[in-house]
């Protein structure tokens, strides 16, 4: 906003920026409504990666998308049964 507009008595953020911010928020929510199949595929991929490092309880695992008023978060609750020290070493040795 330039000086001239200020003298003319325009105050606050321009309505364009309000529009952009509202749009950003509404799209975060719109785009977060992914299908259960995709969420299942994501869960499967995540568990497979984690299983390289620790033993987990696949049945007790919960993965959800949580929408708050101004944010969306992926929340995962994954019970760990056993830490797998040797797999770290084997991973490392496999890489070298």
């Amino acid at each position: 906003m330039d000086l001239f507009s200020k003298i003319m008595g325009r105050q606050g953020p321009s309505s364009k920026n309000i529009a952009k911010e509202r749009l950003r928020l509404v799209l975060v929510h719109d785009r977060a409504s992914i299908s259960p199949q995709i969420l299942d595929a994501l869960k499967e991929d995540m568990l497979n990666v984690i299983a390289n490092y620790m033993e987990i309880d696949r049945r007790g695992t919960e993965i959800t998308l949580n929408s708050d008023e101004d944010s969306v978060a992926l929340i995962a609750s994954i019970p760990v049964l056993k830490m797998n020290r040797s797999s770290q070493n084997s991973q490392r040795s496999a890489r070298y």
């Binding site: 906003m1 507009s5 321009s14 309505s15 364009k16 920026n17 529009a19 749009l23």
Partner: peptide, 16 residues
């Protein structure tokens, strides 16, 4: 209106 900041401009929409 874009000039006055009262309408989203092209780049805003392309970005989004």
């Amino acid at each position: 209106m874009v000039k006055k900041g009262d309408m989203m401009d092209i780049n805003d929409m392309i970005d989004i």
